[in-house]
Design a protein around this nucleic acid. Sequence first.
DNA 1: CTGAAAGCGCTTACAG
DNA 2: CTGAAAGCGCTTACAG
Lengths: 330, 330
Amino acid sequence: MVTIKDIAKIAGVSPSTVSRSLNDYPNISKKTKEKIKKIAEDLGFEFNEAARNLNRKKTNTIGVIIPQFFDDMRGEIFFANLLGKLIREAQMEGYHVRIEYEIEKKYIRKMIQSRSVDGLLLMNPFISKEDVEFILEKNFPYIFLHYIPENFMNTSKINYVRTNQKKGGYLATKYLIEKGHRKILTLSGLSINYEFKERTEGYRKALKEAGIGEEYILDIDVTFESAKKAIKKNYKLLKELDAIFAQTDLMALGAIEALEEMSLNIPEDVSVIGFDNIQIGTYFKPRLTTIEQPLDKLAKIGIKNIIKLMKDDVKVRKFIEPKLVIRQSA
Amino acid sequence: MVTIKDIAKIAGVSPSTVSRSLNDYPNISKKTKEKIKKIAEDLGFEFNEAARNLNRKKTNTIGVIIPQFFDDMRGEIFFANLLGKLIREAQMEGYHVRIEYEIEKKYIRKMIQSRSVDGLLLMNPFISKEDVEFILEKNFPYIFLHYIPENFMNTSKINYVRTNQKKGGYLATKYLIEKGHRKILTLSGLSINYEFKERTEGYRKALKEAGIGEEYILDIDVTFESAKKAIKKNYKLLKELDAIFAQTDLMALGAIEALEEMSLNIPEDVSVIGFDNIQIGTYFKPRLTTIEQPLDKLAKIGIKNIIKLMKDDVKVRKFIEPKLVIRQSA
DNA sequence: CTGAAAGCGCTTACAG
DNA sequence: CTGAAAGCGCTTACAG
């Protein structure tokens, strides 16, 4: 492997000069700088990353902690290549990304103490209190991405970048109301995660604004199958309804399948709106109307801000606005 | 940050002894070893990664090069969380993974020369000849994962882990034949990538084995839309056919939508089989019969073998066997 | 069983 | 504009 020492020897200068030249320091004569760059180029020299990191006390890499359920069904489909987007954004800013599951209790601690990363994007809702407190106490640069652990929801001093879930629920419900629907069922997963509570809050807010008194909330598993089952089971209730707000697209698809098997037409008999905007919705018939959580923005804003935070110790509290995507199902 | 020097001072020993203790060298008295471990634990000590990497001349990380089209539609859907699987497998083996797009011409070279990674999993079919030759010449540990660049297809000295595409095409076609079909159309993407050529070879092999003379091959874009269009356009041809082997699931779904719009029933009038086994196929009606490319195996075998190769300089040439998944569409 | 010393490949304050 | 020297935090051959 070629080092700056090798180059120094060939060029007849000191290693310091080589370092300065290759790093484009100002106080180096054009002549030697060019000579040295030429030699480095010819030899295919690249700085040894470990040596640099050790000396500079930074790694130019952003740690990303992903949740265990990331490769479950829901994760797989919803997070469609979020990792790819994070990698791309980081690379565009000149950083690397170190994506990991938190495989042991003190894993995050370890990443920090070993100085493996310069900052942390935390995407795990189940991150332990101890871990978070450690990060806070060390004043280590971090941002909660997409999720906030529930016990920190109400703390004001937390950094985050996440979708405005309540707004999403509100948009979905308001759209249905504007279409003339009054009896609107929402399929939620209240017991699973607070984001469903927030979506439901949005649902309520829209109903209230429209002066609609009746709520229909079903708290179920957030899967295709359980949505399908729930719709079939509540056959009677359904007769009175005119629209469904499913709080994930997969639930929406399950609901639609149930409705079709009951010979109901969508959206003529019942309108259905989903949440997430997974790509599948594009291929299903009827094409799914839904609320988009813009993952590319999540990635871009997350990366940009953790980098800013690594430099300046600013506060980062950003909401990403969800978007109504109108297609055929509602 | 706490270092072994700090621990040494507290324990009243030399840094060497601390290093040896924490690394569990045999020739250290139980007593001091335990004492030192206790102190390290109390202080929350972790080895500085950069220092270790510099000294040991390795990083414990595997580089993964992903293709630019990774976040295109096809990539997004087909590669469903392949990255997550790679990360998980690597972590289970005690390694990190550095996933990157090849953003500039000599990026791979740079990763090698800067000693950022110990080995490379190459997943880009468009990797340049120069890059590959550089890797080969440096004798740097690498494996082609899933793809092999076309100009190296016929070289015998290449390391790879990939799905047996020909076998996949064969299995799909053979299944259709066994179901009694004779006039089988295949929707391929011959001009896009050699993997489609291989699937088509498999198709041909199965036909030949069954003594079927007629081939129906459509070379189109491998998208939902173009498959749909192709089917509609070839309406006449279709009247004679009894089955379709679409070489991606998305094409299968496009074909199905076209057939349904033409009031044909699946599988009664026309059987359709796909390729990939993307998750969407599970939710569509009719549920998609398809050929699975087992991505979890790809990840696991890829990671396991690059690690082996980093240690031993063995040859790695592994095919992953695709699997027939029978559901409803054929 | 333990320590002193050299070295991994850089960067940079200091001196000239 | 350039060099010698110290230091980043480890590991390990050598000596005892």
